[in-house]
Nucleic acid binder design. Structure first.
Lengths: 269, 269
DNA sequence: ATGGCTTGGTTCATATATTGAACCTATGGT
DNA sequence: ACCATAGGTTCAATATATGAACCAAGCCAT
């Protein structure tokens, strides 16, 4: 590990719970020598990445990151990362991939990508996703803020016979989504379309959107489902990372149990 | 210069004009060896501070900065830095210091700090500053967006006999502010109050607000003016830096010519 | 095609910059 | 007065960074 990497790594120990860290404390959490840590903090301070609270002598993030973040936002729009991941996802699954973002209580379509593999394809022709009837909407309800449930209940339009129609229906679905880390919408918005979505998070740590696959229901098999879920995990991690966020540990844990299933099948074969 | 510092310094070469930089280009602008630069970029990439555009192989700012910037915003509110600088400014000048922020076309008071040195003090008892009559407002017009002039012309309230009353009055004042890097309001809002303001900038590079001194006019002398301007420069640099911005070069240049005046006096004495 | 130009990326001996135990000083609590 | 902990400093030992030279790939005009 290079010296520069070690210095940069110190920054990852700052968090919302622990926004100011003293030298000794930093030594402990970083597991490094005091002199080394001190010099690294000096280097970070010289470049504006940290600064010392003049009162407490504790270190905290510096102003340099503000400017860099602004530049990042300008140079790499969110849509680009989403589109790149959606493209890979569509390629790998042979189905339509799309990404949605949550703004207030509305789930907007950010981008989508159709796979040329099959003649029939799911087409995303809406700009806002109903909360209660789509995988992306349900994902937002499961991992977004609480106000979404109220909004959803105000508009329980029945699109198909499978569209959830009650609060208890939604609560059951949401519990399942939170347990598995995936939202599924089995022909609840359009018949013949099966949706599976995974959540995305931004730099604030909050739910930011979903990456989803809309699959022609007649093609949906157990094998395709496995491909979709494992590819969704990859896409969700990539987009979340690009947006400056991280997947919450409980969700990673839920995904990890899914990942091991194929391995179990391998050992029994 | 430590290795970590050298690596961090590479990040400063990214800008809005040049958001993606290739290895060779980075070597040239950083003036360092290719192997060294490459390894530094590798360290930055490993920590998420830069990433490679997969198409062009060029490096650009990475997602890590987004998260850090959010954390910085949460841990260090703008007001704190402003208040610290205002306090120093009030202490050094013996007059009332205050900081304003521009939001839309309105100039809001962010904080102020009175000096206990004199019995009479200027008191900032307004929450929004008139654009045409105060140093902070004129500063916004000189360095902020163009729409401010229209807004100012819609409300040319005459507070004192010295309040500017025409577009040409304002244009003359603004030209002077742009040339000197300071905005002055000589009893144009309240009689007996002389205001001097310096501009502040944020991480977007745009005008963000002003730091100002409100001085009791009867105490205003050439010597005090020199103290105020030199202290204002220090305060403006500190706040701007803390907000993630930089003072534009033309303004620094204007300030530099002022800085040399006292030196000229010294050499002749 | 060919040769020259540039690009991103890699190697390895050299020596420079990093390391960490021990030390210093100040402060707050008992 | 004492101990514990804090931030900060020193210096010999050595691990780590360095850069000239090198490689492979892409581009472009001949």
């Amino acid at each position: 590990m290079s010296s520069a990497t070690k210095a940069l790594t110190l920054l990852s120990h700052f968090s919302a719970d622990c926004p100011e860290i003293g030298l000794s404390h930093m030594c402990r959490v970083a597991g490094r020598d005091k002199a080394t840590t001190y010099r690294h903090l000096q280097a970070l301070e010289a470049t504006g990445f940290v600064e010392q609270n003049p009162l407490t002598k504790q270190y905290r993030l510096g102003p340099a990151v503000l400017h860099l973040a602004h530049l990042r936002e300008v140079t790499v729009p969110r849509k680009d990362a989403a589109l790149a991941a959606a493209s890979t996802l569509a390629e790998a699954t042979g189905e339509t991939a799309h990404v949605s973002v949550l703004s207030g209580t509305t789930v907007y379509a950010l981008c989508d990508c159709l796979s040329p593999r099959h003649g029939t394809r799911a087409v995303i022709d809406i700009t806002t996703f109903p909360l209660h009837a789509t995988a992306s909407g349900l994902c937002a309800m499961a991992f977004g803020h609480d106000a979404l449930m109220e909004t959803a209940l105000e508009n329980l339009t029945g699109f198909t016979s499978a569209t959830p129609q009650s609060k208890s229906d939604l609560q059951t679905l949401i519990a399942s989504i939170r347990a598995t880390g995936f939202a599924c919408a089995d022909q609840s918005y359009e018949s013949e379309i099966q949706g599976i979505a995974a959540p995305l998070f931004d730099q604030t740590g909050r739910y930011a959107g979903a990456v989803a696959v809309a699959c022609v229901a007649s093609r949906f098999t157990r094998a395709l489902e496995q491909t979709i879920t494992s590819e969704l995990i990859i896409a969700a991690r990539a987009i979340t990372r690009s947006w400056g966020g991280t997947i919450p540990t409980p969700i990673e844990a839920a995904w990890a149990t899914l990942d091991t299933n194929p391995q179990e099948l391998d050992t029994t074969s």
